[in-house]
Design a protein around this nucleic acid. Structure first.
Length: 615
DNA sequence: CACACCTATCTTAGGAGCAT
DNA sequence: ATGCTCCTAAGATAGGTGTG
C-alpha cells in the first residue's frame, strides 16, 4: 500500500476541480495516464480532507508520548533557573525522575535561560517545537514532503493554500556556511552492483510519496532479507537491548544514497539522506520484529532469526532471484532444460522459448514467457495450458505468467496492464500439478501415478496460508490445522494421542489422515533437509495450539461464572473482546516461549480472548 | 555534556472488503 | 458514491545511549 504522492494529489485536485471528473473517472485517469493505482476510497478521503483543511499535507501527528509530565518539565525548568550549574544526574536524583539524564537535559533546554547552540540538532528540534506552539510551523522537515520538489511546486501553488513564504522569525538559525556537498555527489554507479534499470527507478520514484519511501523500496530491491536482518545502515547501535548489529553493505548503501540524491532535490543532501537512513533502519527493524513474532523468537536474536529465515529453501531461492533483475533463462533452456521444455511443448509451443524475470519482489515473482506464438492466441497461455503451469512449477513461480500481447478482450483470470497480460495462477483453474515433478537427472517432467494426497485445501488457500506464515512451517502447520479441524475435534486431542504429563490424561489422537495431510503440506512447502526436526516442531506447535484452546475454554467457563456474579454488581460484559483463529495463532506465537508461565492470573481475559461465537 | 544516531510509540493515511 | 471496520505502512516526535 502506497501513499499518495504530491504529484498524485495535485492530479486528483486538477481532475476534480478543473475537469470536474467523478471519483471513479479520476481513479481511471490516474491509472491509465500516470500508471498510478489509487483506490476510490483514497481519492474520496483525500478530497474530503482537502476541502476540510484546504491543504494537501497530512494532518499533524502527535508522535510518541512524553515520559515527563508538564509538571516535571516545569520543575526541571525551575530547578535549572535557580541553579544554573546543576547537572542532569543531580536533577534526576533530586526530582526522583525515571528517565535518562539526557532526556532531563533536553527538557532543560526548552527554557530560555538554558538555550542550546542554535545550530545543533537539538536546537532545531526545539525550534520546530516552538514554531509548532506558535502555530507557524509551515516549513517542513527537509525531504519529508514531495512538494519540496520543484517538479510539483508549480501545480501545487495553483490549488493548494500552502504558504511556503512563512519563515521563522523567533529563532534565527545561522546560515549554512557553504553549500554542503554530499560525500557522494558524483558517485558513479558501481558496475559490479546489480543496478536497477532507469525505467524501474523512475517507476519506483513515481509511486513513492517521499524520498524515504523511495530509498526503502530500492533497499528491498537490492538486498536480500537475510542480509537485512541484524543489520542497520551504519552498524552502530545505541540501544542497550540491541547489540551486534552489523553494517549493511556499504557499496549498495552508497548506491541507494546516490539514487536518492540524483532523483530528489533538497536544500541539504545530508538532511535528505539522514531521513532516508532513519527510514531504512526503521523498516528493517519493523521486519525483524514482525518476523520474530511470526517464528516466536526474541526480535534481537539475529542469528536465530537469520537461521529461521534460511529455513525455507524456496524462499531463499526467490530472494536470490530478486537480486538478479531480468535474469534470462534462454541459456538454461537451450542447455539443461531445453529437452524437457521441448518434451513438454512440442505440440503446444513453437519456436524459441525464453523466460525473463521482469518484476521481482519477495513472494511476488512474475516471469515473462516470450515465444513465437501469434500475438492473439491467448489460449496458449490459458491456465489449462500445462506447459506454462509446469514451467511455472519448475521455476518455483507461483504468482503469474506474463506475455506481451495486443489482445483487447481477456478472460477474468488475466490482468492486462501496459500492453502485457498477466495470468494469475491463484485465480486460474485449479489444476493438480502436484503429481508433476521435474526429474533433474533425466531432464524431464515425470507424472507420478501414485494416488495423490488427500486434497482438502485448494492451492490458492494453501499459498495464502503460506504467505501469512512468514516462512515458519510451525505457524503454517497450525494455520492449516485450524482450517481443517473444528475446535471440537481439537479439544481433548493431540497429534499422537500420547501424553506424558501427570495432569493431562485421556488425550485422543487427531485424525491420522488429516495430520498426514498437514505433514505432506509442510514437506511440500518447506522442503527442509531435516524434515523430521521440522515436523517435530510442527507437532509441538499443533499440540500447543490445542492446549491453548483448552486453557481458554476453561477460563471462559470461569469468566462466564464471573460475569454472572459481576452482572449482579452492574459489570459491563463487553470487556470480552472478540478474536479469531488468526489472533489465536499470533497469541500462540507470543506465548510459545512461556509455556510454563504461571502468570495466568495477571494476563486476565485480554490475554486469551475467546470468541464466544466459536463455542 | 553535546551530539549523532538509533529505537519506541504514537497518530494519520490508505487499501481491501463489505454493505447501503 | 459513501461509510464502515480492520489492518498495515508511513510519518512525527519522543526517549536512550555510545562517543568524543
Amino acid at each position: 500500500m502506497g501513499r499518495l504522492s504530491t504529484f498524485a494529489k495535485n492530479r486528483i485536485l486538477n481532475l476534480r476541480f478543473q475537469k470536474s471528473y467523478r471519483i471513479k473517472q479520476i481513479a481511471n485517469a490516474l491509472f491509465q495516464e500516470d500508471n498510478i493505482k489509487v483506490s476510490r476510497k483514497s481519492i474520496s478521503t483525500f478530497l474530503k480532507k482537502y476541502i476540510e483543511t484546504k491543504s494537501i499535507n497530512d494532518k499533524p501527528r502527535s508522535g510518541r508520548n512524553k515520559k515527563l509530565t508538564p509538571e516535571e518539565i516545569n520543575l526541571i525548568g525551575e530547578v535549572t533557573r535557580l541553579n544554573r550549574d546543576i547537572t542532569a544526574p543531580k536533577i534526576k536524583e533530586y526530582l526522583n525522575l525515571n528517565v535518562s539524564t539526557y532526556t532531563i537535559l533536553r527538557a532543560s533546554k526548552l527554557f530560555e535561560w538554558n538555550k542550546l547552540n542554535p545550530n545543533s540538532n537539538e536546537a532545531k528540534k526545539a525550534a520546530a517545537l516552538e514554531r509548532q506552539i506558535n502555530g507557524n510551523d509551515k516549513k517542513r522537515k527537509m525531504g519529508k514532503r514531495k512538494n519540496d520538489l520543484g517538479k510539483n511546486s508549480a501545480s501545487s501553488t495553483s490549488l493548494c493554500s500552502d504558504d511556503q513564504s512563512d519563515s521563522n522569525q523567533t529563532i534565527k538559525l545561522e546560515p549554512m556556511q557553504k553549500e554542503h556537498t554530499s560525500i557522494f555527489p558524483e558517485l558513479p554507479p558501481d558496475a559490479n552492483l546489480n543496478l536497477i534499470p532507469e525505467s524501474e527507478v523512475l517507476l519506483t520514484k513515481n509511486i513513492s510519496s517521499s524520498p524515504m519511501v523511495f530509498a526503502t523500496k530500492i533497499l528491498y530491491k537490492i538486498f536480500k532479507l537475510d542480509e537485512l536482518i541484524g543489520h542497520n545502515v551504519s552498524g552502530k547501535t545505541f540501544n542497550k537491548y540491541i547489540k551486534n548489529k552489523k553494517a549493511l553493505d556499504e557499496k549498495r548503501i552508497n548506491y541507494i544514497r546516490w539514487l536518492v540524491e540524483s532523483y530528489f532535490e533538497a536544500e541539504s543532501k545530508d538532511e535528505l539522506w539522514k531521513s532516508c537512513r532513519t527510514a531504512i533502519n526503521k523498516s528493517i527493524r519493523n521486519n525483524e520484529i514482525k518476523f520474530a513474532n511470526a517464528v516466536g523468537i526474541p526480535p534481537n536474536n539475529f542469528d536465530e532469526l537469520q537461521q529461521n529465515l534460511a529455513l525455507s529453501e524456496q524462499h531463499q531461492q526467490m530472494q536470490q532471484q530478486a537480486l538478479q533483475h531480468e535474469i534470462h533463462y534462454e541459456a538454461d533452456f537451450t542447455s539443461e532444460q531445453s529437452n524437457s521444455i521441448a518434451h513438454l511443448n512440442s505440440d503446444q509451443v513453437s519456436g524459441t522459448t525464453s523466460a525473463t524475470i521482469i518484476n521481482l519482489q519477495p513472494n511476488l515473482s512474475i516471469f515473462q514467457i516470450t515465444n513465437d506464438l501469434p500475438p492473439n492466441e491467448l489460449d496458449e497461455l490459458h491456465p489449462d495450458n500445462e506447459v506454462n503451469l509446469k514451467l511455472a512449477n519448475h521455476l518455483n513461480q507461483t504468482t503469474s505468467i506474463v506475455r506481451l500481447t495486443d489482445e483487447a478482450d481477456i478472460p477474468p483470470e488475466f490482468i492486462q496492464h501496459d500492453h502485457k497480460v498477466y495470468i494469475d495462477l491463484n485465480k486460474a483453474t485449479k489444476l493438480d500439478t502436484d503429481s508433476i515433478v521435474f526429474d533433474e537427472s533425466n531432464n524431464q517432467f515425470i507424472v507420478h501415478n501414485e494416488p495423490s494426497k488427500m486434497s482438502i485445501l485448494s492451492e490458492p488457500e494453501i499459498l495464502e496460508l503460506k504467505n501469512l506464515c512468514c516462512c515458519s512451517p510451525m505457524i503454517f502447520s497450525t494455520k492449516v490445522l485450524l482450517k481443517i479441524f473444528t475446535k471440537e475435534e481439537l479439544i481433548g486431542h493431540n497429534v499422537s494421542g500420547k501424553t506424558f504429563h501427570k495432569n493431562l490424561k485421556n488425550k485422543q489422537p487427531l485424525d491420522e489422515d488429516r495430520i498426514d495431510y498437514i505433514r505432506h503440506l509442510v514437506e511440500k512447502y518447506f522442503p527442509e533437509k531435516s524434515i523430521e526436526l521440522v515436523w517435530k516442531s510442527c507437532r509441538k506447535a499443533i499440540n500447543r495450539v490445542i492446549r491453548n484452546f483448552e486453557i481458554k475454554e476453561s477460563r471462559l467457563i470461569k469468566s462466564i461464572e464471573d460475569d454472572i456474579l459481576m452482572e449482579a454488581d452492574g459489570f459491563d460484559g463487553e470487556n470480552l473482546d472478540k478474536s479469531n483463529d488468526e489472533s489465536e495463532i499470533e497469541m500462540f506465537c507470543e506465548n510459545v516461549h512461556n509455556t510454563n508461565s504461571n502468570d495466568r492470573s495477571s494476563s486476565s481475559l485480554e490475554t486469551f480472548n475467546l470468541n464466544s461465537s466459536n463455542l
